[in-house]
Write a protein that binds this DNA or RNA. Structure first.
Lengths: 343, 343
DNA sequence: ATGAAAGCGCTAACAG
DNA sequence: CTGTTAGCGCTTTCAT
């Protein structure tokens, strides 16, 4: 299959009349090799087009220099940013990443985990699927001492470190902002409350209502998946409410955008009839009309932080097990969709 | 570091009183091994938590079972879809992918190529950066017989296969649609005409104008990068034109959306004052107002097709070198941004 | 500053 | 149907 035979350190050792060991050491810039031989080695390496055989090396050294990443979906702005952040620091550190996605299914997530375990990744970064509740499938990793780090969608437990934002607080300030705009009947569109991120934002929502003396109304809570269809359905539900809410806090910008569209199509004026706050700060929020007030969720930072911590742990610079939770800064971005003109 | 010692086929061979070779064969479901021993092997493998050492295997077999992917950016809907398509078929086939991105820089692209070459990917899928004009940096691959496949942004040459859509035709039908709506002065917002995709769409644009007896006007051609800033600037240019165009064909949905926003902010009515057609069919197009007419560019299909072809080549099912160009279906999606009400 | 030699875990050719 | 054996290319003691 391969045209030319691969050149190995033996080939270059022979030509140089030195031992393979010397070549190996030279390539690694080992101090005990003279400048002269090093130069000779590097020159010949270039000339002969030698390339390291990472398999031989890894086989020998017993690590893979790759880290696994499990996410729920690829088609999300947020996830893409996180990936970009991870990629940035891992490649800098000379690590490869293997990306797997679970399509929101626990089974697939477990299968991915198993696969990555068998591939012997040196570490794992994961965001959980919708219906993942236990961390059993990650047990093999912790048993073998392979560090695992969760971000965004997480389950807290003793053995793992998580990188998150303060979702309760974010839910609180989003809702609070709506209240400050004069909203009295605030709906909340979200996803499965079994998932930490959504339940926490929901808690923030309820706390904010409570603190303002607004009674929680179960009918104003709309739970769905995060699909386009769910956004339309949520809007339809809102339209049927009597009286309609005057504010909506949506757990995701895309769903917020879809929902807004349907609302507008039905003659609802935003923000005057209904003020809207989203979540994530996707690019879309600045493009729709009115522009979308949202919570800034800095995906790239999350990715960088997660990757950096993992790699520092791997290289012995720090110890991940000492850290249980890393909270990343996030804040409210106010745009037009929530600014009542009467104010 | 590692807690428990890894278990190898030797360990399990010893316990079963068979040879390592038998275990190896059993694990691969080799026909010449009895059901009985296979079962024994698999049971013990589970029990002892054995996992394949892919390095040893790859070292032995001289292939990596990974394919490299080089893209220009991660933060693009289109690219993400392509990646999803690639991922789908590669994992099905048991291949890993390593993703690298060039940030639109030739240097980085070359560095990525070199890196992946050294990592010995079995094959490569790439979309070129902005300023890439030659294919020199992919030469090592073709020299070693590693198949390389380009998609979207490509350079045609003898040695490579490309997966594309018919950009000329798409540019033509987009422009033609605008003409059919009664547009006489049609602007074109695009990016570097050195890049095949943009120059071809541009050619389609000019062909359509020509066929309709509309003279090409250089002032109506706006070239920029594909950033938000570029979208705003393009809109500003249009606003300054006198007379303003009555139709715009934009090479990218995101830029089209940004541009529309700025136009609307300045009192331009879309589509009545200016009709707009985008390109790509990103999710955003259905969310903005008016909804965006666009060319459907099926990223996931592109990814699947590229990956499938590469893998078929790798497994010997087909030969990529026989194929020079694979053209994927694409079409016009008509929405509100281009439908003049007078019609 | 350099070399010899063993071994990482697996597979495949050959032998039975 | 199973075993023996050699070797993939590298790193790393231990010697010198």
């Amino acid at each position: 299959m391969r045209k030319a035979k691969e050149v190995t350190i033996y080939d270059i050792a022979k030509k140089l009349n030195v031992s393979p060991a010397t070549v190996s050491r030279g390539l690694q810039d080992h101090p005990a090799i003279s400048k002269k031989t090093k130069k000779k080695i590097f020159d010949l390496v270039d000339e002969m087009g030698y390339r390291t055989n990472h398999f031989a090396r890894n086989l020998r050294q017993q690590h893979t220099k790759t880290i696994g990443v499990i996410v729920h979906e690829l088609n999300s702005n947020f996830i893409t940013s996180v990936l970009a952040g991870i990629e940035k620091v891992t490649t800098e550190a000379g690590y490869d990443i293997i990306i797997a996605h679970s399509s929101e299914s626990y089974e697939k997530e477990a299968a991915n985990a198993k696969n990555l375990f068998h591939k012997r990744v040196d570490g794992l970064i994961a965001s959980l699927s919708f219906d993942t509740t236990d961390l059993e499938h990650f047990k093999p990793f912790i048993d073998k001492g392979v560090p695992v780090l969760f971000f965004d969608r997480v389950e807290q437990d003793e053995n793992s470190t998580v990188v998150v934002i303060d979702n309760i607080k974010c839910g609180y300030i989003a809702t609070r902002h709506l209240i400050d705009q004069g909203c009295k009947r605030i709906a909340h569109i979200t996803s499965s409350l079994k998932r930490n991120v959504y339940s926490q934002r929901y808690k923030g929502y309820r706390d904010a209502l409570f603190d303002s003396g607004i009674e929680f109304n179960e009918n104003l809570l709309i739970v769905g998946d995060l699909s386009e269809k769910a956004g339309v359905e949520a809007a339809l539900k809102i339209l049927k409410m009597d009286p309609m809410p005057d504010g909506v806090f949506v757990t995701n910008d895309f769903v917020a955008a879809v929902c807004m569209r349907t609302l507008k199509e039905n003659g609802v004026s935003i923000p005057d009839d209904i003020a809207i706050v989203g979540f994530n700060n996707d690019a879309i929020g600045k493009l729709i009309e009115p522009s979308l007030t949202t919570i800034n969720y800095p995906g790239e930072d999350i990715g960088e932080i997660a990757a950096r911590n993992l790699i520092n742990h791997l290289t012995g610079i720090s110890n991940i097990h000492q850290t249980n939770t890393i909270v990343v800064r996030s804040d409210l971005i106010i745009r037009k969709s929530s600014l009542k003109s009467g104010k």
